[in-house]
Every structure is written in C-alpha cells, then in structure tokens.
Simulated assay, not measured.
Amino acid sequence: MREEYLDGTEVSGGYCRALKQGNMIFVSGTGGLDQHGKLAGPDVTSQSRLVYKKIEKALAHFGADLSHIVSVVIYVTDMSTTAEYQAVHSDVFAKYKPTSTLVGVSGLVAGMSIEIKVEAMID
C-alpha cells in the first residue's frame, strides 16, 4: 500500500515530501529552507542540520527514524564544503552507516547550498 506525506514545504505541486511503499520510505530531495522559505543559514553546516531534522520528521510520520536510512544522496553547490557536510553526516550517522553518494551541482533552488534525499527501510 502506498502512503504519501506532505509537510507544506514542497516547492511546487506534483510531488510529495515522502512516501512509503511496502517497507520502503523515500524522502524527496530536502533543502535547508525553514517553514517560511528562509535559509537556515548561509553555510552548509546549518543547512545540513535543518535538512536532517526535516528528514527525521518525515520518517517519523511513517514510524521510522534516522537509523532506518539505508541510502543517502547529497547534492552540494560547492565541493570545497564537503568537510563541513561530513561533520554533520558523521554526527547524524554515528551508529548506523548508510550508503552515500555526494554529487556536485551548479545550483539549487532558493540559493541552497545542499539538498539531501534518502531512502529508508523498515521491518
């Protein structure tokens, strides 16, 4: 059975923040914009922290948490900020290590420096 989650921060129509299909949860690319559309901060660290809080909230909707994440894809606009992101990533995944892909991109919506999408699996 397919279940969708919308949190009101979707930039445009046509997609959901997250969806659960069977035992898999897919969280759309999530950026560091707060509920008012403002950047959490100018740096990758503050944006990353907010992103993981938003992802955690989406997972919780389906009864999951960050430990259920099996795959992460990170999009960054400046590859020189990798160490900043990795510091947050290491904190978030201190116990559970998902697969991970880092991709450099030329730009993201609303001036974001980072966008993260995840896939999680529950029992």
Rank of each mutant, 00 (worst) to 15 (best):
M1I: 10
M1K: 08
R2E: 07
R2T: 13
E3T: 14
L6T: 15
D7V: 14
G8C: 09
V11S: 07
G13R: 01
C16E: 04
C16H: 10
R17A: 15
L19D: 12
G22F: 00
N23W: 06
M24K: 10
I25G: 00
F26T: 12
F26L: 11
F26V: 11
V27N: 00
S28K: 02
G29P: 14
G29L: 11
G29K: 02
G31T: 13
G32K: 01
K38C: 13
K38H: 12
L39C: 12
L39A: 12
G41H: 04
G41Q: 04
D43E: 09
D43N: 05
T45C: 06
T45P: 00
S46F: 04
S46Q: 10
Q47Y: 05
Q47V: 13
Q47T: 10
Q47C: 10
S48H: 01
S48V: 00
L50E: 08
K53D: 15
K53P: 06
I55F: 04
K57T: 10
K57I: 08
A58Y: 00
L59Y: 00
D65W: 08
S67A: 08
H68G: 07
H68T: 15
I69G: 01
S71M: 11
S71R: 03
V72Q: 00
I74D: 05
I74N: 05
T77L: 12
T77H: 10
D78H: 07
S80D: 09
S80R: 10
T82K: 08
A83W: 02
A83K: 09
Y85I: 07
A87I: 01
A87R: 09
V88T: 02
V88I: 10
S90T: 07
D91F: 04
F93C: 06
A94E: 12
Y96G: 02
K97D: 11
P98Q: 09
P98W: 03
T99I: 05
S100L: 11
T101A: 10
L102C: 10
V103C: 13
V105W: 07
V105R: 04
S106G: 15
G107F: 11
L108M: 11
V109E: 01
G111L: 07
G111K: 07
G111S: 09
M112Q: 14
S113G: 13
K117C: 13
V118F: 01
V118E: 00
V118I: 11
E119R: 00
E119H: 01
E119Y: 01
A120L: 14
M121P: 01
